[in-house]
């Protein structure tokens, strides 16, 4: 920290630092929270669609969001049974 930084801090107290840290943190947490909500919803809805045809376990559905600067990607990884006994034809 610079000499002036120290000086400024002793005059203004530590509250401005707290304020700055909070602003940075919360802007991050707000986007993360809305993304993770989206992932939760997507996971449930994807599971519901797949489960109409194939038996899948909730724990075997993996939905991930990767956020990049320009594009974000959604990765869906679903483990289904090796045999297709679990397959339910459309007319069933």
């Amino acid at each position: 920290m610079s000499f002036f930084g120290m000086f400024k801090r002793s005059v203004q107290g530590t509250a401005p630092v707290a304020r700055e840290r909070l602003q940075v943190l919360l802007s991050h947490e707000r986007t993360v929270a809305s993304e993770s909500d989206l992932v939760v919803v997507l996971r449930e809805e994807i599971l519901a669609v797949i489960a109409r045809r194939v038996k899948v376990e909730f724990d075997n559905v993996d939905v991930r969001m990767n956020c990049g600067e320009v594009v974000s990607t959604l990765t869906v990884d679903i483990e289904i049974p090796a045999t297709l006994d679990a397959f339910t034809p459309a007319h069933a």
């Binding site: 005059v11 203004q12 107290g13 530590t14 509250a15 707290a18 304020r19 909070l22």
Partner: peptide
């Protein structure tokens, strides 16, 4: 007032 606590406006 001494800046030890977040201000109301903040």
């Amino acid at each position: 007032a001494r800046g030890e606590m977040l201000a109301i406006d903040d």
